[in-house]
Nucleic acid binder design. Structure first.
Length: 351
DNA sequence: TATCCGTGGGC
DNA sequence: TGCCCAAGGAT
């Protein structure tokens, strides 16, 4: 029985490990490069080296699947609306949020605008190419800085994203928690040592795509993986090791559906994170006790599992308006930025 | 270091 | 259904 496979009733189908990637780095790089040049995917963001377009793609793809971005043509549509730094730098927040609707993590698009303004003001409209300079831009962290440097400028900058973390943890069969400081240090060191300094753009693209195509979180396709001969682990489905997650918390929300003369009562979010988004007005359980329940929906947001109850309320029963609440014409509702679960619930109750 | 930030799809 | 996951970053 393979080490680590105790308690299994099956064995991972995987080619034999032949050589260490670090000790045979040139062959490892050649393997990756030859596979990628033959079979690498032709994503829209790989057809450009414009740093602005590269930044947009990297930010859009943060914690968002390639499939989601591709399917909705979100990258192409966003660049059509904001083709350059000058265009986005003067856009009102509501236009930003609308252009990003459905993608989630809305601070990403606010930071895109901040970065556009910073590059215009501090760099004369030309993106810096050094990682430390890129790191100073809003919304640009270690991964995105390396991605811009390598993808836009072909600079020899290493990157570690979720794909590469998974690939390297398996290649080196390392159980260190990838989300610990020690684990991250290991991964960045490996990424830098393995990096093809002559072809950093291709190397980084290829290593990420190995993770997306073959070295998947579940059911890795080791039998046809181009770098399987360098991969030590016999238990790829147990890697990468991560810290235990926090428990989810159940939350109940009570929202009003109040209509008056072709208008509906909505609240505009004031908080720093969801600022600018519209939602239905919320009330306490006591305040809605006598109202008719229209429908109930559930959705998950980070560690919260929200149960949302919608109630029909008469204008007179709408209590006093809170300061963030306002009457919005029904025909304008589709134009307002709104979180996906809220829009779904609202559309169902209005239809 | 821990927690927050969205959404859609897979199983 | 409930949980996991995805080209992370800010606080």
């Amino acid at each position: 029985m393979n080490p680590g496979s105790e308690g299994r009733d099956w064995v991972v189908l995987k080619p034999e490990y032949l050589s260490n990637a670090l000790q045979n780095a040139e062959r490892f790089r050649a393997c990756l490069r030859e596979w990628f040049e033959a079979d690498g995917q032709d994503h829209p963001w790989r057809k450009t080296t414009d740093p602005w377009a590269i930044l947009v793609s990297e930010v859009m793809l943060q914690q968002t699947t390639v499939a989601a971005v591709r399917a909705g043509r979100r990258f192409e549509l966003f660049l059509t609306e904001f083709p350059d730094l000058a265009t986005i730098s003067v856009a009102p927040e509501e236009q930003l949020l609308k252009a990003w609707e459905g993608l989630g993590y809305y601070n990403r698009v606010r930071n895109l605008q901040k970065t556009a303004r910073a590059v215009l003001e501090d760099w004369g409209g030309v993106f810096p190419r050094a990682v430390p300079d890129l790191l100073a831009l809003p919304g640009v962290g270690p991964y995105t800085a390396g991605a811009i440097a390598s993808f836009a400028y072909n600079e020899p900058a290493p990157i570690v994203d979720g794909n590469i973390a998974r690939v390297l943890a398996r290649v080196f069969d390392d159980l260190t928690e990838v989300d610990s400081s020690q684990g991250k240090a290991l991964l960045w060191n490996w990424s830098e040592e393995l990096l093809d300094k002559v072809n950093p753009r291709i190397f980084n693209s290829a290593l990420m795509e190995i993770g997306q195509v073959f070295c998947r979180p579940k059911n890795p396709n080791c039998m046809v993986c181009p770098i399987a001969e360098f991969c030590i682990t016999r238990v790829p489905d147990r890697l990468p090791n991560k810290k235990a997650k926090v428990k989810t918390i159940a939350v109940v929300e009570h929202a009003l559906v109040v209509r008056k003369a072709g208008k509906i009562l909505l609240a505009k979010e004031e908080g720093s994170r969801r600022k600018g988004f519209y939602r239905l007005p919320l009330r306490t359980a006591e305040e809605v006790a006598d109202l008719e329940l229209l429908r109930t929906s559930k959705y998950a947001i980070t560690k919260h599992r929200v149960t949302l109850h919608l109630y029909r309320a008469l204008e007179a029963a709408g209590q006093e308006l809170r300061k963030e609440e306002r009457w919005v014409p029904l025909k304008e509702v589709t134009e307002l930025p709104m979180a996906s679960p809220v829009r779904r619930a609202l559309e169902e109750v209005l239809s």
